[in-house]
Amino acid sequence: MTTTATYERPRVRKPIDWWRWAGRGFITFIMLFATLPMLWMILTSVKTQFAAMQYPPQWWPAEPTLNSYIKLLNPNDQIGQDFLRYFGNSFYVSFLTTVLGVVVAVPAAYAFSRFRFPGRTFLFFSVLVRNMFPAVVFLVPLFILMRWLGLVNTHGSLVLTYLTFGLPLSIWLLKGFYDNIPIQLEQAARIDGATRFQAFLLIVMPLSSPGIIATSIFSFIGAWNEYIYAYTFLSRDDQMTLPVGIQRFFTEFATDWPGLMAATFLMSVPVVVMFLVLQKYFVQALTEGAVKH
């Protein structure tokens, strides 16, 4: 004899997951907020001047043209010549800042991570505190200093200044990387016959390359985007970097919005590409230190 047990099956209606939908709505909103201005920049840059200056606006360029870009990138054109020179200046300054930054930050970060010398904490904090102060506070005295050093209107003044923006962050970031490399690796290397410096160079340096990449992106982007020092320290046209140089287009060709948008776009390309390729390191660098696991 068998009895069939009867079990109750509660009737459940799956509720609508409001949170999920709220999340989707929010993400849509924020995506539009973030991307539409960039989209409009690109759309404007491929319009003719006439098409750009219409009311109501032409939502989609009727006859797209690459004229603005061609003008900016043509070395035989006066505008193109200037633009390319600014581009080169920006690249030169950013590259130099990045390389020197790594050379200076690596040993300092290593020391802060590995050694316990008196005053370590104080020095470390004083380096960090640099980021607290706005550029403007340093502008006047630095201007005087650069004048005294004979560096006004040279790229050297910018590189020296940008170095100090980058250094605190670079040192902080790299220190985090060195903290995570087990000290036993260096000890093993030293027992295996390496000097302290060889252990650093052959074992630690290759392992910290993600950190070096991360800090390099930061220094580069920071230097590439910097405006106020370049604006103050440089007055010679042939020295200007892009963010400052672009302003000249704006004032001289006040109505050429497509040209300005194209210049802005071209100016953003290097950093955006760099960011997209090395996104992982960039994000890591950004959050390192703030999030302790």
């Binding site: 036993q184 000890q187 027992i191 295996d192 000097t195």
Partner: peptide
């Protein structure tokens, strides 16, 4: 350390 002619095995192995 390099001049003491010793070898060491570490707890976390310390392999490069």
């Amino acid at each position: 350390p390099k001049d003491r002619d010793i070898a060491m095995v570490f707890q976390n192995y310390a392999l490069y």
